[in-house]
Measured scan of single mutants.
Amino acid sequence: MATKAVCVLKGDGPVQGIINFEQKESNGPVKVWGSIKGLTEGLHGFHVHEFGDNTAGCTSAGPHFNPLSRKHGGPKDEERHVGDLGNVTADKDGVADVSIEDSVISLSGDHCIIGRTLVVHEKADDLGKGGNEESTKTGNAGSRLACGVIGIAQ
């Protein structure tokens, strides 16, 4: 089992970053940390998408990683996509320092995120509470600013 993974985020604009993942036990939580720069100040949706395909930019990554066919939600919700990591918060300089621990994603097994795409979005994720159909699919997080395929790390 891989215990570490990394993702280099890039987009068409100024947004870029490096996100690290570490899972010490196969059924334990995954620590997610790193930094994203070039964002507007505020909240930005942060999700693992189904495919590791960036051939047409971030759009070819498909929908959120959702092997259990659930509705979109927040990272602490029972009803959520596996890939729903909530929001990252950018400061006035456009930098989001990421520090998350998640017990639904994994670096092995059915919820493995390796080979899938991590995406940072234009807007805040409403965590499935926006009151419309799009909220239950995407959290109304808007366009995909930057993305990268999650790969095994040393």
Rank of each mutant, 00 (worst) to 15 (best):
A2W: 05
T3V: 05
K4I: 11
V6W: 00
V15Y: 14
V15E: 14
G17F: 08
G17N: 05
I18W: 08
N20W: 09
N20K: 14
N20L: 10
E22F: 03
K24E: 15
N27H: 15
K31W: 08
I36S: 04
I36A: 11
G38Y: 10
G38P: 08
L39S: 07
T40Q: 11
T40D: 12
E41Y: 15
E41R: 10
G42M: 14
G42T: 05
G42W: 08
G42Q: 05
L43P: 10
L43R: 14
H44G: 06
G45K: 03
G45A: 05
F46S: 08
H47C: 02
V48W: 03
E50R: 06
E50I: 04
F51A: 02
D53G: 00
N54H: 14
T55S: 11
A56P: 01
C58S: 03
T59Q: 13
S60N: 06
S60M: 04
N66A: 11
N66L: 04
P67C: 13
L68R: 05
S69Y: 08
K71I: 08
H72C: 00
G74P: 04
K76N: 07
R80K: 07
L85T: 05
L85Y: 04
V88T: 05
V88N: 11
V88Y: 06
A90I: 11
A90E: 06
D91G: 09
K92M: 11
K92D: 12
K92F: 14
D93Y: 14
G94T: 09
G94Q: 15
V95D: 06
V95Y: 06
A96P: 04
D97W: 10
V98E: 06
S99V: 07
I100Y: 13
E101H: 12
E101N: 14
S103I: 14
S106R: 13
S106K: 08
L107V: 13
D110Q: 10
I113L: 10
G115Q: 01
T117Y: 01
V119T: 04
V120S: 05
H121T: 02
H121K: 01
K123C: 11
K123H: 10
A124Y: 14
D126H: 14
L127M: 15
G128D: 03
K129N: 15
G131H: 04
N132W: 08
E134I: 12
T136F: 09
K137S: 11
K137R: 08
N140I: 05
G142V: 01
S143H: 07
L145K: 14
A146Y: 03
V149R: 02
V149K: 01
V149I: 12
V149Q: 05
A153D: 15
